[in-house]
């Protein structure tokens, strides 16, 4: 972590960048937050990079790269897909960004600590990238101490890590560690849902989505949700009140959101990570990714900055609409 701080200080000092977008210590050991640092002192005091720094900083670069001067940003390998996608959609100004690709050994899921009765963390060690990856030592505010396996509290998404290679960067710091589970299939859950009968599937999603409190955390964190005004807030569109017509319409928010990010979602998994109600929102996106892969050939949003997405490009080999229909009939 100190390497990151040192390098950020150097780049600030020599004028390469005028600000640093990174993670700041939270009020608790497990809730660091995205922050813009402007001085060496601030970096030394508050900068942090550990297993709880799951936040994808790419989206903050939309605003940051509009500012005067370059912004240094730390991006994990998976975050760089989002950054590329934002370049493709003309949302970030690459010239105003200095990207340090940071290594990653998988990020942690506080919910899993809580499930073990270790949610109220007072002290924790073993979660920095430099630590040998395997064991975490936790001490709770109640004085309970425990050694746990890193992988037992890792975010689900990290078991299906796309790659530990950064897709875009100016320089790289710290090495990554492999986290992919043996035989991991990121579409396994989707296939299970596909195998359900329509009635079961409807019940499943109704049950999951009924938990939604419309806090909009998923929308706010999603790098693909970068509209200036969301259609759900757009009074000129008349969708806002539509979505409030009944509880099902309310749930439609997530389905419409999934449609809007289809072909653009990099599967960064931030939606599910931030959902306070623990709704597996990433399943919608993965379903669309699987469908698009099947119908248009494999495509990973954000693997470069130019290839048009499957749903916004027309080629002679595109499937006929009937193919989708046949597919939905199984």
């Amino acid at each position: 972590m100190q390497e990151l701080i040192n390098r950020a200080k150097e780049l600030l000092a020599d004028g390469t960048v005028v600000r640093v977008l990174g993670w700041k210590k939270g009020d608790l050991p497990y809730n660091p937050e995205p922050h813009i640092f402007t001085s060496a002192q601030e970096l030394e005091k508050d900068f942090i990079y550990n297993g709880f720094c799951g936040a994808n900083l790419s989206k903050y670069m939309i605003a940051a790269t509009k500012l005067e001067g370059k912004t240094l940003v730390f991006l994990k390998p998976c975050d760089t897909f989002s950054f590329n996608q934002l370049i493709k959609e003309h949302q970030v100004n690459r010239d105003n960004a200095y990207i340090i690709g940071v290594g990653c050994k998988g990020k942690l899921d506080h919910r899993k600590f809580a499930a073990m009765g270790l949610g109220d963390i007072a002290e924790i060690s073993g979660i920095e990238l430099s630590d040998a990856c395997d064991r975490i030592h936790v001490k709770t505010i109640y004085g309970e101490e425990k050694d746990i396996d890193y992988r037992d509290v890792m975010l689900e998404r990290c078991f299906f890590c796309k790659t530990k290679e950064h897709q875009i960067f100016d320089e790289k710091l710290l090495d990554s560690k492999d986290t992919v589970a043996e035989g991991a299939d990121r579409f396994e859950e989707v296939r299970k849902i596909e195998a359900m009968t329509p009635a079961e599937r409807y019940a499943f999603f109704r049950s999951e989505l009924s938990k939604c409190i419309r806090c909009n955390a998923c929308r706010n964190v999603c790098p693909a949700c970068n509209c200036r005004h969301c259609v759900f807030d757009n009074t000129k569109y008349d969708t806002a009140q539509k979505a409030n017509a009944d509880t099902f319409e309310e749930n439609m928010f997530h389905i419409i959101r999934a449609f809007h990010v289809a072909g653009r979602c990099t599967d960064c998994g931030e939606c599910s990570r931030v959902c306070p109600q623990n709704i597996p929102l990433h399943l919608f996106n993965r379903k669309f990714i699987l469908d698009a892969d099947d119908l248009y050939g494999e495509f990973q949003a954000g693997s470069d900055t130019t290839t048009p997405g499957p749903l916004t490009a027309y080629t002679l080999h595109d499937v006929e609409p009937a193919a989708g229909l046949e597919r939905s009939r199984g």
Binding site: E89, H90, H229, K236, G309, T312, Y314
Partner: peptide
């Protein structure tokens, strides 16, 4: 286009079959 709502993402230009949209 509603200029206040457009965020310049180019999706419309990509799907336009007539090349009618520029930025």
């Amino acid at each position: 286009p509603d200029e206040l709502y457009c965020n310049g993402c180019s999706v419309c230009a990509n799907v336009c079959p007539y090349g009618a949209i520029t930025y």
